[in-house]
Write a protein that binds this DNA or RNA. Structure first.
Length: 980
RNA sequence: GGGCCUGUAGCUCAGUUAGGUUAGAGCGCACGCCUGAUAAGCGUGAGGUCGGUAGUUCAAAUCUACCCAGGCCCA
């Protein structure tokens, strides 16, 4: 006779008081072979096993938007201690890449965790808007349309740049939101709002007022055709033939007496820079030789008897160039021996009557040339840096056309390059003059890689130009910045040394750019004195105008409105250079943290990739140290860079780029967020198809843990809750573990160590819960009488686990934990993110119990090992078929006092025996003294709980059940009768 | 070339600061069990010259030097 199934499937468990809905029929009529499944309390939940994150996450986002979650959080945490993570602004062009995703997810995890630690983590995202890349995009458009940028009014050009930035802000904002990043997305900050531009002007004004801003000069890559400076990215390198010369600089002073009357040889491919020469660089660790020429070839301009200093490495080549066929070595030197030596310029007596000092230069090599480098501070970046460091002047020698200025002796008016980029007469005239002076040792030609303009394709030169600087020394900026570094917490600590090294040696900050899209260096220069106008009122008038009209006010306005009465605009030059964009972003702390309600200065934390030691951390530090005497942050956290699965840099050409949008679309943002915390982001991170798949695996375990909790908490009510004191040890052990993990979670959040947090939680879910606690308690949850103490204790703990796990994982799995939380608590404005981490009472701590259960699990491992052998021998399948006998020393047996080893090992029965077991018993090497003999459990199988017990069959009515199950079924039947 | 950093099982990481038992974990993998968490759950197992070489030491993943590979920032 077929068993008639009940009207419902499994008993539904409703709200409190929780009792099941009726089962199929009264127990008396249940036949011996009944299907008891419907009498079990099996898990039930609408929380699906398959996440479907790509579809579900946008729904959750929409709900957050709808309830105004960010606003609710601000209300909830009003008055709490603030945690301000100040957002480093990404540049507003292009879609997000994986590095953006890493950065913003990390920030989000930190903000959410600080919020749940009980703080007010108000996060205002921002964008960096000014600068070259956007200018190029607009220029590119003009080119495509056949327009010339220079013919477009600057205000119109700037407007197009602004619109371009706006467009990308909108796109990136949506992409960031999709990652689950929560913040004030409706009111982000940008560097191009009028208020921001005005504040940047004010900040610059502080450097003007302090006198730290000064006009100096610096060589830049210059196109004589376009008459403009070019940025690195606008430069192409092509082969070009250049003249080469070896030039002798006579020594006029040196420590070593042998050097008297000797000459230092330099080699260069730019003869035209010799008029700009002001020093010679040598390498400290290099070997040098002083030689005397004894024989020369016919074509040589070098006479025997001349004494020349050269580096040992390139000496033979250099002498060959000079036609020297015989020489003798007079002396040997180390570079360091040349310290303090001075030469005269080879054109001395013809307008070049200054000394040429020998300086140590760490860029000097012996690969080419003579081992000495001619230093023209106006014509090379390294030359300028070395010269500036030693107080050597940087002369202006050529104008914007590439023509020697009038004050240049001998060569005024000569051209380095012609108007169309061709070779001018400067090189030839300089070479001729050197030959006349007798200092030309050799000349030749060389084809080498040389910079050219990307636009005109004409060769470029390094040309000295006027620029605006912030002095590192005049007002003690360097010292202030170094002190600020020492007062800041750097995570990881190596960041301290990294930025310190940079600040210690960096030259003055070049603030000016000859560009259009940026905040102007809003300064007036007195035409006669060359001094910047230092007048608080003028600066305020400019800033106020910018606040109302934007920075265009500076470009479009009449200077008289700023200068005020009593000054003649004709006396002043208005500076139209713009600020280095690093000054913009370095000032964000002032127009965001200081001026926005709800925020605070300084920031609790700045968090960016490690490249920002040179970038934003650096510029923010200098800006704030100069204007406020300290860093704008209390702590700085850096993360590494994202590499591909093999640890290589990602590039389009390698085809190894992982786009965050693709991961989100295929797996979901929670998977990407899991990836972030699964790695040690203090170092470089890898991502590739396999690594993403691994995250999906880890995710499944966490999701299923939550699903198990939800399923077994169906209908849980407060009246069912049990006090820990009344709980079995197993439950109290779980509470102890929660106490331990709570501590770990809070410490990990303090340390921003989410990898440790993730590992701890994942291992806890997999090892302690799924493989141990849940596995053991499934029997009680499914089979025990509905309100049995053991079952109530377990459900109470499951409730606590749910509370803790959803909170602890919420900063990471922001979507999944929300889904799980709402599954149980679907309130209108309910959100897991509005919670704080649950209070875990100290009373849950029980070290003695933990020690005891370490023993329990050690014994259990021997049992499971023994069961596996029995399984292999086909003696058992399910562990419930077994009856293990555990032999252990008396101390271990005593430790199990009051515990049921059968329950713990999921066997039907277990026996504990003190003493050594039989020699054939199963043992594990790492559990000495413990052995297990697996017997088969005697008795019949309970058709409900599947335990094999001798008592089965003893119930007169339900002969196929054990006593416990018979009672449970009877209880259900009683209740069902009441209900029906 | 310089500054900072990294290299431990297929993957992600502990362990290195203060050298000391057979180098651990989770995942993956293989095999098996269960079929009442089921595109789940449980168990067992395999898998590592600790980037390489040389050195210090009774003893090195751990300290030193050099080398190789990779990253960021400079040059």
């Amino acid at each position: 006779m077929p068993v008639r199934r009940g009207t419902g499937a499994a008993p539904r468990i409703g709200g409190p008081p929780s009792f099941p809905v009726p089962v199929s029929r009264p127990p008396e009529t249940v036949p011996m072979t009944a299907d008891y499944k419907s009498t079990l309390f099996l898990p039930e939940t609408g929380f699906p096993m398959r996440a479907g994150l790509p579809r579900r996450e946008p729904e959750i986002l929409a709900r957050w938007e709808e309830i105004g979650l960010f606003g609710l959080l601000r209300e909830d945490s009003r008055g709490r201690e603030k945690f301000i993570l100040h957002d480093g602004p990404p540049y507003a062009n292009g879609h997000l890449h994986i590095g953006h995703a890493l950065n913003k997810i990390l920030k989000d995890v930190i903000n959410r965790s600080q919020q749940m630690l009980g703080k007010d983590a108000n996060y205002v995202p921002g964008w960096d808007c000014h600068g070259l890349p956007i200018e190029w995009m607009i220029e590119e458009r003009y080119r495509a349309a056949g327009r010339n940028k220079d013919e477009v009014p600057i205000v119109e050009f700037r407007r197009e740049c602004r619109e371009f930035a706006d467009k990308w802000i909108d796109i990136q904002r949506e992409e960031f939101k999709r990652l689950g990043v929560i913040g004030d997305w409706d009111n982000p900050y940008t560097t191009m709002t009028f208020a921001a531009e005005a504040q940047i002007v004010r900040e610059l004004g502080k450097f003007v007022m302090s006198g730290e801003l000064y006009r100096g000069s610096k060589p830049v890559m210059w196109s004589c055709v376009e008459k403009t400076a070019l940025a690195e990215a606008e430069i192409e390198y092509h082969d070009r033939a250049s003249p080469t010369i070896d030039v002798a600089f006579p020594v006029i002073a040196a420590r070593a007496p042998e050097l008297e009357g000797a000459e230092v040889a330099i080699w260069t491919t730019t003869p035209w820079t010799i008029p700009g020469n002001r020093a010679i660089a040598y390498g400290d660790g290099l070997d040098y030789r002083l030689i005397e020429v004894t024989r020369t070839g016919a074509a040589s301009g070098v006479a025997p008897g001349r004494r020349i200093v050269l580096a040992a490495g390139p000496m033979e080549d250099a002498l060959a160039r000079c036609g020297v066929s015989g020489h003798r070595e007079v002396a040997r030197f180390r570079g360091a021996d040349l310290e303090g030596a001075v030469c005269r310029h080879p054109l001395r007596g013809r307008g070049y009557d200054f000394d040429v000092p020998l300086l140590e230069g760490d860029h000097v090599t012996t690969e080419q040339g003579t081992g000495f480098v001619h230093i023209a501070p106006g014509h090379g970046a390294e030359d300028w840096a070395l010269g500036t460091r030693h107080g050597v002047e940087t002369p202006h020698t050529v104008d914007e056309d590439g023509r020697y200025l009038d004050h240049v002796p001998l060569f005024a008016g000569a051209r380095v390059l012609t108007g169309d980029g061709g070779e001018g007469d400067a090189n030839g005239r300089v070479i001729a003059a050197l030959a006349e002076s007798g200092c030309l040792l050799a000349k030749g030609r060389l084809v080498h890689s040389y910079p050219h303009s990307w636009r005109s394709k004409a060769p470029l030169i390094f040309r000295n130009t006027s620029q605006w600087f912030v002095s590192m020394e005049s007002n003690g900026l360097r010292d202030k910045a170094l002190a600020a570094i020492d007062a800041t917490r750097w995570v990881p600590p190596s960041g301290h040394a990294r930025i310190r090294g940079m600040i210690e040696t960096r030259p003055d900050w070049v603030l000016s750019r000859q560009r259009a899209w940026g905040v102007p260096i809003a300064v007036f220069v007195h035409k006669e004195t060359g001094e910047a106008l230092r007048d608080r009122a003028v600066i305020d008038r400019i800033a106020d105008a910018v606040e109302k009209e934007g920075a265009d006010a500076w470009f479009a306005g009449d200077p008289r409105r700023f200068l005020g009465d009593g000054r003649d605009a004709g006396d002043y030059e208005q500076v139209f250079d713009i600020l280095d964009v690093w000054f913009d972003s370095g000032s964000t702390h002032s127009f965001v943290l200081e001026r926005r309600p709800g925020l605070a200065w300084p920031a609790s934390l700045y968090l960016e990739g490690s490249d920002q030691h040179r970038g934003w951390f650096h510029s923010s530090l200098l800006e704030a140290a100069g204007t406020r005497g300290r860093a704008p942050y209390d702590a700085v956290l850096t993360h590494g860079f994202v590499l591909d699965g093999e640890g290589r840099k990602m590039s389009k050409s390698l085809g190894n780029v992982v786009a965050p949008q693709d991961v989100v679309e295929q797996y979901g943002a929670d998977i990407l967020r899991l990836w972030v915390v699964s790695a040690d982001y203090g170092e470089d991170l890898r991502i590739g198809p396999e690594i993403v798949r691994r995250q999906a695996d880890s995710y499944r375990r966490l999701r299923n843990t939550m699903r198990f909790l939800l399923g077994n908490l169906a209908g849980f009510g407060e009246d069912e809750r049990l006090d820990p004191a009344a709980m079995p040890e197993l439950e109290r052990w779980v509470l102890h573990r929660l106490w331990e993990i709570d501590r770990l979670v809070r410490k990990a959040c303090d340390d921003f160590d989410f990898h440790a947090l993730f590992v701890a939680l994942h291992t806890f879910c997999a090892t302690d819960l799924s493989a141990f606690y849940f596995d053991i308690r499934k029997d009680a949850l499914y089979c025990d009488p509905l309100n049995g103490t053991r079952r109530r204790a377990c459900r109470t703990v499951l409730d606590t686990l749910f509370s803790c796990l959803t909170a602890w994982l919420a900063p990471i799995l922001c979507f999944t934990t929300e889904e799980a939380w709402l599954q149980r608590f679907p309130g209108e404005k309910e959100s897991v993110h509005r919670r704080v981490f649950p209070e875990v009472p100290e009373s849950w701590r029980d070290d003695a119990l933990a020690a005891k259960w370490r023993t329990v699990r050690r014994l259990r491992r021997v049992v499971t090992g023994a069961l596996e052998v029995a399984r292999r021998e086909k003696r058992i399948g399910s562990s419930l078929q077994a009856h293990p006998a555990v032999h252990a020393d008396a101390a271990d047996i005593a430790a199990l006092d009051g515990l049921d080893m059968a329950e713990i090992a999921i066997a039907s029965r277990a026996t504990l025996v003190a003493g050594a077991g039989p020699s054939a018993a199963f043992r594990l090497d790492d559990a000495p003294g413990v052995s297990v003999v697996v017997k088969l459990a005697d008795g019949g199988r309970c058709e409900r709980c599947w335990m094999v017990l001798e008592e089965v069959g003893s119930d007169p009515v339900m002969g196929d059940l054990c006593t416990r199950c018979a009672g449970a079924v009877a209880e259900i039947a009683d209740v069902s009768e009441v209900v029906t």
